[in-house]
Amino acid sequence: MADTRVDLCGIELDNPVIAASGTFGYGYEFAELYDINCLGTFSFKGTTREPRFGNPTPRIAEAPAGLINAVGLQNPGVEAVIAEELPKLKKCFHKPVMANVSGFSIEDYVHTCTLLDKEPQVGWLELNISCPNVHGGGMSFGTDPKAAAAVVRAVKAATKKPLIVKLTPNVTDIVSVALACEEAGADGLSLINTLLSMRIDLRTRRPVLANVTGGLSGPAVFPVALRMVWQVAGAVKIPVVGLGGVSSAEDVLEMLLAGAAAVEVGAANLQDPWACRDIVRDLPGVMEKYGIEKLTDIIGGAHG
């Protein structure tokens, strides 16, 4: 029997499949389609201190083998998330969940993380310092090692739960940001967030997205994500969660071989709402095909 269990910052997951933030809401809508307890876990919709409508529409565009989004962190704000969304989530999901947090200042991040840190069902905090779609925050922390370290240090000092920092690929040297986060006390890293991108409408001759640019995700970015996971996992000692275009059990194994301790699945959920369930279902068979008995045996295996 294939052993799909993995460890993420001291919490055991039944399998390494984590639905990625912004593609899975707060879980309960997917729970109408299948029992989401089959997942390792999921990272809920990026939460900020105040409610946000997000960017003007259109904020979605098609891309070859993927999509571009410029949603801009629409969410009801941390207080409503705790009062209204988490009780609904709790009814359909019985494992520790990952709380994805974004902000516009260190104080924002600390405030939101402190509140979510107290929620019993939150297993990990995932600090989004990599959203390409909001101005004056998000990615500006993730593109500078010093700014990244400062926000990680501040949140770490105010919270108890494992802190996973989500990194942007829109930098020349992701390893330097990863090392700065590790040094500042991060318990894990997740990468990659979306790649800055755009489309132009030939009929209107204007950008498709009202925000002009957005973040590319989907199978198109998988090889880029894999390369960055390889580089970061080779440089840090803390666990790395690999994401970016993962859409099959085979992709999960590639990510683990590159050094990921677990994976997140994002865009695939938007194309096929049953994608995560199917990846979890397929995993033991694909492990058997490649002669893998225990998933933890192959983490980082490609580094030789």
């Binding site: 809401g25 529409t57 259109p58 979605i60 949603v71 629409q74 498709v208 938007l270 709402p273």
Partner: peptide
């Protein structure tokens, strides 16, 4: 009409502001 991503409520791509909120 809206430019949609998923079409089933997950991606928040097609939100409109209404009297009851987004």
């Amino acid at each position: 009409e809206a430019r949609m991503g998923c079409g089933f409520g997950a991606c928040m791509g097609c939100t409109v502001q209404t009297a009851s909120g987004p």
